[in-house]
C-alpha cells in the first residue's frame, strides 16, 4: 500500500469518525426530541459512508483487487437509517398527540402522562391541584402539618361521616 492510499484512508476514517462524534454530541446536547432526531442522522449517513469508503479503499488496496463487501454496507446503512428515524419521529408525534389529547380530556392520573414534556406536566399538575381544591373545601390544604394523603383520608372520612373531626384541624391552624 502506497503512502498516498494510506493518507486517503486515514483522512476519510478521521472525517467519518469526527462526524459520528459530532452527531453523538448533538444527540447529548440538544434539548427536545425533535431537535435530537437531526444530529443522529449526521453520523449515520455521511460519517458511515466515509468510514466505509475508507474501509473499501483499504481492503481493496491491501488485497490488490476490488472487494465489494464494503460497498454493500455503503448502500445499506444510509438507506435504512433515515427509515428508522422517520418511523421513530412518527411514533413520537403520535405519542405526543395522544398525550395532548389525554391531558386536554382531563385524565391526568394516567401513569404515562406523568412523563410528558413540561407543558403536559404543568397541565396535569394544575388539573390535579384544582381537583384537590374543589374536592376538599373544608379540611383542605391550608393545614400546615398535613401532607396530601392524610388530608385525602380526612376528606374521605368527612364525606362519609359529615366531618365532626375533619374540620377542627383545618380551622384551628
Amino acid at each position: 500500500m502506497t503512502l498516498f492510499v494510506a493518507v486517503v484512508v486515514v483522512l476519510l476514517a478521521l472525517f467519518g469518525a469526527s462526524l459520528a462524534l459530532v452527531g453523538s454530541l448533538g444527540l447529548l446536547r440538544l434539548r427536545s426530541f425533535y431537535e435530537r432526531a437531526h444530529p443522529a442522522t449526521l453520523g449515520a449517513t455521511l460519517g458511515a459512508t466515509s468510514i466505509l469508503l475508507a474501509a473499501f479503499i483499504f481492503f481493496s488496496a491491501s488485497a490488490g483487487r476490488v472487494l465489494p463487501k464494503a460497498l454493500l454496507l455503503i448502500v445499506f446503512i444510509p438507506l435504512v437509517s433515515p427509515v428508522t428515524t422517520m418511523l421513530l419521529a412518527r411514533a413520537a408525534l403520535a405519542r405526543d398527540r395522544a398525550k395532548r389529547r389525554a391531558a386536554a380530556a382531563g385524565s391526568a392520573d394516567e401513569d404515562w402522562l406523568r412523563e410528558v414534556d413540561e407543558l403536559g406536566r404543568a397541565q396535569a399538575e394544575a388539573a390535579r391541584q384544582q381537583a384537590v381544591a374543589t374536592g376538599g373545601s373544608g379540611g383542605g390544604h391550608d393545614g400546615a402539618g398535613h401532607d396530601a394523603d392524610e388530608s385525602a383520608t380526612a376528606q374521605g372520612r368527612g364525606a362519609k361521616a359529615s366531618s365532626p373531626e375533619a374540620d377542627p384541624p383545618g380551622g384551628g391552624t
Binding site: 459520528a20 453523538s24 426530541f33 443522529a40 458511515a48 474501509a55 437509517s81 428515524t85
Partner: peptide
C-alpha cells in the same frame, strides 16, 4: 422512551462502525 430508542440506534451504529474500524 423515544429519546432512548434514538440513542439506542446511535449506539448500535457507532458499534458497527467500530467493528469496521
Amino acid at each position: 422512551a423515544q429519546d432512548r430508542v434514538l440513542a439506542f440506534d446511535a449506539v448500535y451504529l457507532n458499534a458497527a462502525l467500530q467493528i469496521v474500524m
